[in-house]
Deep mutational scan, measured.
Amino acid sequence: MSIQHFRVALIPFFAAFCLPVFAHPETLVKVKDAEDQLGARVGYIELDLNSGKILESFRPEERFPMMSTFKVLLCGAVLSRVDAGQEQLGRRIHYSQNDLVEYSPVTEKHLTDGMTVRELCSAAITMSDNTAANLLLTTIGGPKELTAFLHNMGDHVTRLDRWEPELNEAIPNDERDTTMPAAMATTLRKLLTGELLTLASRQQLIDWMEADKVAGPLLRSALPAGWFIADKSGASERGSRGIIAALGPDGKPSRIVVIYTTGSQATMDERNRQIAEIGASLIKHW
């Protein structure tokens, strides 16, 4: 067993022997300050990975656009099909120029040879490739089937209704393509630590998230040396920005953090900075 597999395998073990964890309200002060700075709603939740206990939250049951954070859930659904023998990570999918949508930095380079399901999930999570996400959605039956998968997991909140890039419209009070911080955190925890996926698939999912290449300005920018993070960011219209992450010190994840914001007129750089500052406060008061 590799060191990485050993780390994931021990998560349920540590759950039975973990020391108590305590929240620090200073982080919530920073979350509220971020709302003021951005002139927008901010949703935040911090969940103990082992016990599932909510350590701190702000607007945990308000809806926010999922943006590209849905791609982790999508690849979780794909992996569940792999575990059930209904899909193969090595299966090659061919597509055409007509399938390409905006922001497809990986898939646009493989029009001649296609990409495997594994490569598409990697592109969707690590590079947030939109065409990769659409091709993967097709393999499971579309957005409604992803919503059904989540319902079967016990998540009756999170929903995907449209494809890339339309799902990023982020219209106020529109429940399409939205989640709540509490629902997303719970669902992510189930995918990473529960029995829904095999150990190999849980490890694959967290490996893809750990290799995320487009979330550098967010929580990763505040991460001390030696800390672990596996994450997925998202951005969409109407000043929306978000990130879902499993992180912790000593090279292993111990908490789930979900941050969403929407309705801001601030620049992308400012939205990134506010999320990074929330992360810095979280780490300082860990």
Rank of each mutant, 00 (worst) to 15 (best):
M1R: 00
S2V: 09
I3A: 12
I3L: 13
Q4T: 13
F6C: 10
R7S: 10
V8N: 15
A9E: 06
A9R: 08
L10Q: 07
I11M: 11
P12Q: 12
F13A: 13
F14A: 13
F14L: 09
A15G: 15
A15L: 11
A16L: 15
C18A: 14
P20A: 05
P20H: 15
P20T: 15
P20S: 12
H24R: 06
L28M: 12
V29A: 15
K30V: 07
D33V: 11
D33N: 10
D33A: 14
L38Y: 08
L38R: 03
G39V: 09
V42L: 08
G43E: 00
D48H: 03
G52C: 02
I54Y: 10
I54G: 01
I54M: 06
L55K: 03
E56S: 07
S57L: 04
S57M: 10
F58C: 05
E61T: 04
R63Q: 04
P65L: 03
M67C: 11
L74V: 06
L74R: 01
L74A: 03
C75S: 04
A77S: 11
V78I: 12
L79R: 00
S80H: 15
R81Q: 10
V82H: 05
V82E: 02
V82L: 03
V82T: 08
V82C: 11
G85R: 11
Q86A: 12
Q86P: 02
Q86I: 13
E87A: 04
E87V: 06
Q88K: 14
L89C: 04
L89W: 03
G90N: 15
G90K: 12
R91S: 04
R91H: 09
R92G: 04
R92P: 08
I93L: 12
H94P: 08
Y95V: 06
Y95L: 05
S96Q: 13
N98E: 14
D99N: 11
L100M: 14
Y103A: 07
Y103E: 04
P105A: 03
K109V: 08
K109R: 14
K109Q: 11
H110C: 07
M115G: 01
T126I: 07
N130G: 03
T131R: 00
A132E: 00
A133V: 08
N134S: 01
N134K: 01
L135F: 03
L135R: 02
L136G: 00
L137M: 09
L137K: 00
L137C: 02
L137W: 01
T138R: 15
G142V: 13
P143L: 01
P143Q: 01
E145R: 12
L146S: 00
T147I: 04
A148R: 15
L150G: 01
H151R: 14
H151T: 12
H151C: 05
D155I: 12
V157D: 10
T158G: 15
R162W: 01
W163R: 07
W163L: 08
P165R: 03
L167C: 10
N168M: 03
E169C: 11
P172I: 10
N173W: 14
D174I: 01
D174S: 04
D174R: 02
E175S: 11
T178R: 00
T179A: 06
T179I: 00
P181L: 03
T187V: 03
T187K: 10
T187R: 04
L188S: 02
R189H: 13
L192G: 00
L192F: 11
L197A: 01
A200P: 13
A200F: 07
A200S: 14
S201N: 09
S201V: 09
Q203V: 13
Q204C: 14
Q204A: 10
I206V: 10
I206N: 04
D207R: 13
W208Q: 01
A211S: 09
A211T: 09
D212E: 04
K213G: 06
K213Q: 15
K213S: 10
V214S: 08
A215N: 02
A215V: 01
L219F: 05
S221R: 11
L223I: 11
L223T: 10
G226T: 07
I229L: 04
A230G: 07
G234R: 00
A235Q: 06
E237V: 14
R238E: 11
G239R: 03
R241K: 06
R241G: 06
I243L: 08
I244T: 02
I244L: 04
A246V: 11
L247I: 14
P249Q: 04
G251T: 05
G251C: 07
G251H: 10
K252N: 10
S254E: 14
I256S: 00
V257C: 04
V258I: 06
Y260S: 00
G263V: 06
S264C: 10
A266L: 08
T267L: 06
M268Y: 08
M268G: 04
A276L: 07
E277R: 07
E277K: 07
A280R: 06
I283T: 03
K284T: 11
W286L: 09
